[in-house]
Amino acid sequence: MSPTLEVRDLQTHFFTRAGVVKAVDGVSYSLQRGKVLGLVGESGSGKSVSGFSIMGLVDEPGRIVGGSIRFQGRELVGLPEPEMRSLRGNRIAMIFQDPMMTLNPVLRIDVQMIETVLAHEKVSHTEARARARDALGMVGIPSPDERLKSYPHQFSGGMRQRVAIAIALLHRPDLIVADEPTTALDVTIQGQILAQVQKLATDLGTALIWITHDLSVVAGLADDIAVMYAGRVVESGSVDAVLDAPLHPYTHGLIGSVPSRNRRGAPLQQIPGMTPSVINLPPGCAFRARCPRADGICQQTPEMAELLPGRTARCFHPHLETVPA
């Protein structure tokens, strides 16, 4: 069976006065039906831009300059806007980071939900309202009939994110791109929403791309993981394998930086330095300036290579020694 989503060598660049920002520069991943891919990276690593690229929502001065995005076998790069629009919110949905900002403050929830139903299906207004109500119930909003008549500001942050998720689920999409949807929420709410989304994705057979910088979220939710650094995927594989024995020094450092993994009393580990600016990035491994293992060969750009079965990384000096035999 062909994967729900297959991204090959995607390149999304922003053409600014300061230079070309290669926000996404050769990103590949694929996703099977009903699976969850965790897309992990620091701020500015290009993970969000790769999500917007899939949605066809890259704003000026950004542009997809190369690669392919195949959704259910259909090429999305270069797809005319009307066709892309008929997929958006219908077959591919997106959930945003800040639930306080994603709903229009001056329109009622029912208006914002019903318009989404009517944008893709010719159904009666009553039918659309019923669908909206069911979706709200599905994400665990109590008394959905009354809540439909509310305005966004009458909801808490967690509730608003549930509404956003309900909107994303209205057409039972095949793919949801979730861009750090729980980052702005309390830990308890975050847990509830994660559990709910996981259940819904399994029930509906929806594939999920979960963009986050939080490894603990990915550990509990995702099947596969792709770690991004400076616009490229530096390591990918199944979530358990990668988190247990990371191959790339960056992933290694990232996992080491999670406080709960450190021993009590011992100083926290950190990755020295900062994410490099992706404007006019010099050739070679982008991580070499911060990498304890870097040497002369890292002046060249490493290729993505399958180092172990089902595990790929972009590194000349991977941590192969820690992999259990």
Partner: peptide
């Protein structure tokens, strides 16, 4: 136009 709610509205597939 640059607010998130507009981008979200576009992500919903509105005209």
């Amino acid at each position: 136009m640059v607010m998130d709610y507009v981008k979200f509205a576009r992500a919903k597939g509105l005209s």
